[in-house]
Amino acid sequence: MVIHLSKVIQNLCLFMQNPEVFILAIESSCDDTAAAILQNDKVLSNVVANQLIHNQYGGVVPELASRAHQQNIVPVVDAALRKANIQKEQLSAIAFTQGPGLMGSLLVGSSFAKSMALALQIPLIAVNHMQAHVLAHFIAEENFEKPKFPFLALTISGGHTQIIKVDDFFEMKVIGETTDDAVGEAFDKSAKILGLPYPGGPLIDKYAQLGNPKAFVFTKPKVPGLDFSFSGLKTAILYFIQKKKIENSNFVDENLNDICASIQHTIIEILMDKLKLAVKETGIKQIAIGGGVSANSGIRNTLKKAEDLYGWKTFVPKFEYTTDNAAMIGIVGYQKFLNQTFETSSVVSKARIQF
């Protein structure tokens, strides 16, 4: 980083003498502009600006997302600082999402983080978005227990579906992942087939709570090992609805709750089948979920019931840390700060990035 090295070293020495570390975290991987302030592992503020403009298009438009990030990032960071009641001069480091995500969106966050770190002469920390979903469980929250290493993490979102073996904060291995659509896509595309507005996943969850999960049967894809596939299920749902609407044009309206419950039940069974196999293969019975789809009530309830059914210890994060947010970026930033894992201004954003 092109800043005065002596100043950075001086700041780090002060931080080592004072155990209080203040991290500004920035998340801009998709369509939410988020900033958070963490004091060590405690969240002081967690601000998110949503981009409602995408709703009319039925999905995220990358160019519109990056423009909205440019408009939102300064007021969002300012709001996070004010809510945390700290001055920017008190910051110990700035953490930002390096990837994966939409390149235009990522560049807005990384450019802002680089500029602010340069101006304040404090360390810059790059964070893997998916690692952040996993490590969100380590944010200090009352009545929320942290998993112990090793554990299995199920990360489920609009763009990812993965089973990860987590041995330490930064020792993670993907042991299963989707071969096509992510689980979030399966929910949203199924909702679109039913004529529900975007984002449709939360609506399927809402209607599913009122329906019979065994009213309709959808065939689960047969994928070897711990990998997932959801494209076939989406196609099966499409053909099923098309056939039923030929027989009865009002079929969806008359059976919406049962259809949603049956779709959600099938998706949850697919996830649970793979989790049970992962536990069998690894011998690890600690299961933590993360990612936007982990906000789904059916998945949360099923995972909690697994504690009694299978003898697992399960961890479900606080609702606000499931969808894209900056607090999860901050907790990774804090751990990297403790390890003094910093970046220079030459660090690049990556639309695709491995663990």
Rank of each mutant, 00 (worst) to 15 (best):
I3G: 13
L5I: 10
I9S: 11
L12Q: 13
C13S: 14
C13P: 01
F15C: 10
F15Q: 14
M16C: 12
V21W: 05
V21T: 15
L24G: 02
C30D: 01
D31P: 02
L38V: 10
Q39C: 14
S45P: 11
S45F: 01
Q51T: 07
L52F: 15
Q56K: 15
Y57H: 15
E63P: 03
E63D: 13
E63M: 00
L64P: 04
A68Q: 10
A68V: 04
H69Y: 00
N72D: 09
N72R: 03
I73E: 03
P75D: 07
V76A: 02
V77N: 01
V77C: 14
D78I: 09
L81I: 15
L91F: 13
S92W: 04
A93M: 05
F96R: 05
G99M: 00
G101V: 00
G104H: 02
S105A: 15
L106D: 03
S110T: 13
K114V: 05
L120V: 08
Q121K: 14
P123G: 11
N128D: 12
A132S: 12
A140S: 15
E142K: 15
E142R: 12
E145W: 04
F149I: 05
P150K: 09
F151R: 05
S157V: 00
G158S: 11
H160M: 07
Q162E: 15
I163G: 03
K165A: 03
D168M: 02
E171C: 10
T178N: 01
D181T: 00
A182E: 01
G184M: 06
E185G: 10
D188K: 12
K189I: 07
S190Y: 01
L194M: 11
L194D: 01
P197G: 08
Y198Q: 00
P199H: 04
P202F: 04
L203A: 10
Y207W: 14
Y207V: 02
L210S: 13
K214V: 10
V217S: 12
P221W: 15
V223G: 08
V223P: 06
P224M: 10
L226P: 08
S229H: 03
G232V: 06
K234H: 02
T235I: 06
I237F: 12
I237Y: 05
L238R: 13
Q242I: 00
F251G: 00
V252W: 12
N255P: 05
N255E: 08
N255D: 05
N257A: 12
D258S: 04
A261P: 02
I270P: 08
K274G: 03
K276N: 12
K276G: 09
A278D: 10
V279R: 07
E281A: 09
E281I: 03
K285R: 15
K285S: 11
A288R: 07
I289G: 13
G292A: 08
S294T: 07
I299E: 07
R300Y: 07
N301F: 14
T302C: 14
K304H: 13
A306Y: 12
W312H: 04
K313Q: 14
F315V: 09
F315E: 08
K318D: 02
K318F: 09
T322V: 13
T323S: 14
N325K: 02
A327I: 11
A327R: 11
I331W: 03
V332E: 01
Y334W: 11
F337Y: 14
N339Y: 10
N339S: 08
F342G: 05
E343I: 06
S346Y: 07
V347D: 07
S349T: 06
K350A: 09
I353N: 01
F355G: 06
